[in-house]
Design a protein around this nucleic acid. Sequence first.
DNA 1: TTCTTTCGTGAACACGTGTTTACAAAACAT
DNA 2: ATGTTTTGTAAACACGTGTTCACGAAAGAA
Lengths: 346, 346
Amino acid sequence: MKKQEINSTKIAQLAGVSRSTVSRVINNYPSVPPSTREKVMKVIREYNYFPNMSAQVLAGKKMRTIGLFMIEKGHVSSDATSNMLLASVIETASSKDYYVLTHIIRDSRDPESINGVKEIFYQGRIDAGIFIGADNHEPFIEELIGEGFIVGIVDQHLPGRHEANRIVYSFDNEKGVMQAVDYLVGLNHKNIGMINGDMKRFAGPAKYEGFVKAMSHHGLPLHEEWILPGDFNRRSGYAAIQGLVQSGVKLPTAIIAANDSVAFGAMKALGEHGVAIPEDMSIIGFDDHVLSSYSQPKLTTFKVDFGYMMSGLTLEIIKAIENHHDHHVNVTIPMELVVRDSCKKI
Amino acid sequence: MKKQEINSTKIAQLAGVSRSTVSRVINNYPSVPPSTREKVMKVIREYNYFPNMSAQVLAGKKMRTIGLFMIEKGHVSSDATSNMLLASVIETASSKDYYVLTHIIRDSRDPESINGVKEIFYQGRIDAGIFIGADNHEPFIEELIGEGFIVGIVDQHLPGRHEANRIVYSFDNEKGVMQAVDYLVGLNHKNIGMINGDMKRFAGPAKYEGFVKAMSHHGLPLHEEWILPGDFNRRSGYAAIQGLVQSGVKLPTAIIAANDSVAFGAMKALGEHGVAIPEDMSIIGFDDHVLSSYSQPKLTTFKVDFGYMMSGLTLEIIKAIENHHDHHVNVTIPMELVVRDSCKKI
DNA sequence: TTCTTTCGTGAACACGTGTTTACAAAACAT
DNA sequence: ATGTTTTGTAAACACGTGTTCACGAAAGAA
């Protein structure tokens, strides 16, 4: 392990200046004249010298590293989405000369697991952390914010919570569902049901709120038996329809699914019961999953720009790191209806 | 930014011992008696103290961080595979208390791009790096190994290259293709063609070697016009078949594709020309892509265990980091034939 | 020319930790 | 009771860098 033997002292000796001057050259101090600067730079380039990061950080500089924490509650989300989220964060960070430390949280209720996360922050491995897939108001995240760490959260919204160092980016789930209801009403639907997602996550309650508001706005009654629980998974969509059919109640003419996976599950169950889509039942999803344009029929859904979201969040995080004064942001991003073949005018 | 105000000196004062003793407690020195240890640990826990990583590294400890470099030559590989590779590395590293810094290399021929990679190594941000998607004998990787950095490479094989600090894990592409030929010969095929992958990558030449060897072993002639170039992408499989059909030469009765994507492209082109699979043409792929069991017909292919590969590679990398003596490994992993519906006895 | 200001740079200190050295106190052996 | 080993801990140094402070040299002003 003979590497890393070159340091700023050696560079200083070779260039015939003091170590301070080397440091000034590296950090672009204007006081050093061009002749000296070039003399030092020549040696630096020749010896492939890069300042040691640990020493720089110890001396007060930033790590230039962002932690990316992906919370995966049981369900393995090995789909293309998390890949895109990750790529977007990495590329955006990279463009600002920042690095990304990726970490997977298998179970955010396991003390051992969250201790590992706290360790990363307290050890000073990262300047800030981004959490993906967190429940609303996850205690250990609140604790980190309370300790003064900079935290970015995706798809979460805590009304009234605008503390320093909390950067929140969310999609406008509420307005999305309202738009979905508007669209279905425009197709003459009056009996509209919903399969929601996990109510502990932000998107669940938000979508519920939107549904209630929109139905009330159109003067339509709310049938409790058509508001089905789910957890954002395909299986839960399947189970919701199964339960609904087996309960024997009249079916709605349209269903809003919390996301495309749920919609796929529901479509499978509906197919098995001989309910034709969109002839007998219109269905609308969320997220514009890659498979949505391959399903049978092609799924009408809402397109959400994950790349835009993560890029914006990452830039805001970097701003928070570099600004001394405390920084907080709460951005809501609209989604866009993509009309395909799963809804029909009645 | 009031955090991180707690350090080992404070802990020492609060526990009524010297800073050295605190350090000894943290690093599990046997010389400190249980009473003292407990006294110190109590304060450490109470104040949520974690040693500062930068200071530890500066004092000689390891970063406990592995760089994961994903080389993406133009083609965006946003598929499930890279996600699994990443997850496997992170989980394995995490189990040994190591962290992963993920970096995307958009173009490994761009000097700016490779300078960014070198910077990560030379700054001491990582103890070792893993490269995914590298060409054989990529110059900047060789340079890093030459500098004494620990490097892990996936799916590469440089005969005779067993230098220290080079950890190579590859699938046995050569034997895989030989097995494929054996299987097809067992189905009475004699006219066997191949659509290969990028010859600059390891898997390309290895598969070609295997093909030549196996055909010769069975005493079958090598038809040069049936050995088609490709680059591991769906499009290249499509183009290969298009070219073959348009050239007017007699078609083989079976084709070995470099991977499943290539096979899918080939199947699409064959379908467009009215060639039925497997009736008129048998086809066999590699990698057991998630879509392979959904294609029409379901694709016979070779299953490769990426998780096993990355996990093994990561563990070996950690061994190299922690062992003082130089370490090198070159592991070849077999693949397993998965028979589905795309090959037929003639 | 002499005094003042600007410019350039070296010396010294700080950051937080691991480790080596040295030394006192306790335990043991005679 | 005295000499010897063991045990536990404190003080000092090292790691590589950024930054402050002070000071000499050069440039400008009177």
